[in-house]
Design a protein around this nucleic acid. Sequence first.
DNA 1: CTGTGACTTTCAGTCCGTC
DNA 2: GGACGGACTGAAAGTCACA
Lengths: 80, 80
Amino acid sequence: MVSSTGGHSKKRISARAVLATNVVSLRREKGWSQEALAFECGLHRTFVAHVERQARNIALDNLEKLAFALGVEPFELLRP
Amino acid sequence: MVSSTGGHSKKRISARAVLATNVVSLRREKGWSQEALAFECGLHRTFVAHVERQARNIALDNLEKLAFALGVEPFELLRP
DNA sequence: CTGTGACTTTCAGTCCGTC
DNA sequence: GGACGGACTGAAAGTCACA
């Protein structure tokens, strides 16, 4: 058993989970609160919270806003 | 002159445009029609067409379906 | 086989408040 | 500062007819 997440070692982490992880760590690296990040990308505070908790299926245009607010390219937010 | 592709070197291509380009080329590499790709990822033929023409703001879950149907990771569809 | 506008249904995204 | 619930509005999903 490689790990406990099921049986297969090739288990694919959902794009939502990867995104959430990346957003949280990039945000914390900058010492920002969810509110501060929301302000920077022009989205709502609760929406950013939902994305970080994998509770929302974010659309591409907003993924792009999030990326630029965090100072990275859109594809970097989805890279594991 | 840094480079030759126009005037501005800092021009950011929209995530939609990058996605469209990548989907079209990966699809053609496989010799698939839009209909075939739509079937593979469980989406509608016209929806795929709209994405390829940058006419839709696709959400993450569908981006993921598209990626796996094309045999790549989600972030690779957004990499320029 | 593909492009496109239009349409209905579902949900992304906002805003309120409470713990 | 962050998790979470409810209610609302606008936009994405999904489909179709026709070019």
